[in-house]
Design a binder for these strands. Structure first.
Lengths: 172, 172
DNA sequence: CATGTCTATGTTATAGTATAACATTGTGAA
DNA sequence: TTCACAATGTTATACTATAACATAGACATG
């Protein structure tokens, strides 16, 4: 593949790629939060896991396991897929990151360590992924399921379209 | 992988696997409907495409592209991945089938050829996939997006859990 | 401190999912 | 008929993910 993902990025790659969205401060803060959440729960927030979360936090986009892996190995960690997948598994299992199913890629969570059923907005122009929480969405989904006698254990809600920033770019 | 999917099927495979959920009658009817929808829209409902849809209609579960491919080639069609992927692409693009992102697998659509934003209920015990339509769900999702200035073009809603039948089995 | 146990990391190998690119065939309009 | 285009078929390869086993750390217990 010249890849679904890279063709998605053709437009405005300059916008999405260069300026990191969060300042280091925020990232360090998020990492510290994750660390204490882990301590509380008796989980081990090891160096690889921390590094993977840091990499995710540095991006506004979702990143694939192999891109993570590449950056990990540049930093001296192992260079084989399980190294990335295991940390990603840990982070997603414990609510520090999410997998975006439509992209086979991952994002940091904005409310780390909490139980929640988020919805994601994926911009097909700038590739940004935004996490949203909607009580009513989950309520309605729950009702729809209940009506069929279905017990939801995990929900995936992903909307693809155009984000506000890109919509505005188009109007100009 | 001994595979996520095959381990998912360990329980009650007997229930889900043997009896096809729809009688041939219904399947033939669905195929006929698809055929006329295609005619209306000037689309070509070719033999491979028909066969793929038929295979999907025969299952209550989602099936992977390679499983489809295998059955296709047994029936005399080509045996290489694009053969399956192209038909699946056609069927999903035009609303005759859906991809279940969490499973990397496909299901026939229950309201073929219509524009709609379905939600799916995936049973982790019997692997059944049920399509549901909820106006309010889409409404709420749309509102949540609108609140962020996001324009939804396509939505993916997939709930994983336990279906009514399996819940009842557990209670017995 | 020694030791056994459990978790995490690292590696090799391989399975599973998907598409690019090009050759060939079929279909329909001019 | 012939041209243009869509569909099918094939080869080759890219991308995503996990199994299985070896090694190394963490940590509780005697």
């Amino acid at each position: 593949m010249t890849s679904k993902r890279s063709h998605r990025s053709n437009r405005s790659g300059d916008i999405a790629d260069s300026p990191k969205w969060s300042c280091d401060n925020t990232i360090q803060q998020a990492l510290a939060t994750a660390e204490s959440r882990c301590r509380e729960k008796g989980l081990r927030f090891t160096p690889v896991r921390r590094k993977v979360l840091e990499l995710l936090l540095q991006e506004k986009k979702a990143i694939g396991a192999y891109e993570i892996l590449e950056r990990l190995s540049e930093t001296g960690f192992g260079s084989q897929p399980p190294v990335a997948y295991r940390s990603l598994g840990f982070l997603t299992r414990h609510g520090f990151a999410h997998k975006i199913e439509r992209l086979n890629a991952f994002v940091a969570c904005i409310c780390p360590g909490e139980k929640h059923a988020p919805a994601f907005m994926i911009c097909r122009l700038c590739d940004s992924v935004t996490e949203a929480h909607s009580f009513s969405l989950n309520h309605v989904l729950g009702s729809a399921a209940e009506a069929k006698g279905f017990q939801i254990e995990h929900s995936t809600v992903e909307a693809e379209g155009i984000c506000m920033t890109c919509v505005e770019q188009l109007r100009i």
